[in-house]
Design a protein around this nucleic acid. Structure first.
Lengths: 106, 106
DNA sequence: CAGTCTATTCGCAATTTTGCGATAACGCAA
DNA sequence: TTGCGTTATCGCAAAATTGCGAATAGACTG
């Protein structure tokens, strides 16, 4: 039960320890992302789960860290499908688009 | 069993008769759309099922028919999330984005 | 404390999407 | 055939997104 001596093999576990361990506010944000549809949070979650920094992901898709940061900003609404696909391609993910009917209240 | 005397109450049925009845090539395209991920076809399917022309949908979201036609073009790749949401909002649909892992071959 | 790594924000140029009219083309019906 | 409704394509201006460096800030470590 040591604190920092256990060897980790999984990138997900590594990134989890680096970003979320002992930071309840980050964990909470991640939970909300699972229920929410926010694209910015989906990108953030995808990137961090892959164990990448914004600069690293930026390089993978041929852009810079500031661009990734902007895409992950909560109040950014200017996402394009092309950009989502670039990110998905870099992280081996397919972008799925779905129109789902809105239940007219109750 | 008359051909055109049955009264229809559902917009979906109306549009189905107007666009797909007796046109196997259109029907086939629609079937493929259900299995495919093509966004253009999803927009087309959504619009026709709502019983709208391109001009009508355009007006609903504050643009013209040529814009809708472009969005429904098979080789158009420039979709933005904002535009998809505008269309969805007009047709009471929520746009759902999902990153789904790609299985690395077999 | 300084030093490093990461993320955020600010400008502005470059690229892309959107807006929109005009025109052509297609299918269908009289 | 003509006419009508609908869709497709072209061209260019307007608006939005992207590219990218620089500066700032925060967290962590030595």
């Amino acid at each position: 039960m040591n604190k920092n001596t256990k060897v980790t093999f999984d990138a997900v576990e590594i990134i989890h320890r680096r970003y979320f361990k002992g930071r309840p506010e980050r964990l909470k944000a991640l939970e909300e992302a699972r229920a929410d549809d926010d694209v910015a949070r989906k990108i953030f979650e995808l990137r961090t789960k892959a164990g990448l920094t914004q600069a690293q992901l930026g390089k993978l898709i041929g852009t810079t860290a500031s661009v990734i940061s902007r895409l992950e900003s909560a109040d950014y609404e200017g996402h394009s499908l092309a950009m989502l696909r670039r990110i998905g391609a870099a992280l081996n993910q397919r972008v799925e688009i779905k129109f789902v009917p809105i239940r007219r209240s109750a």
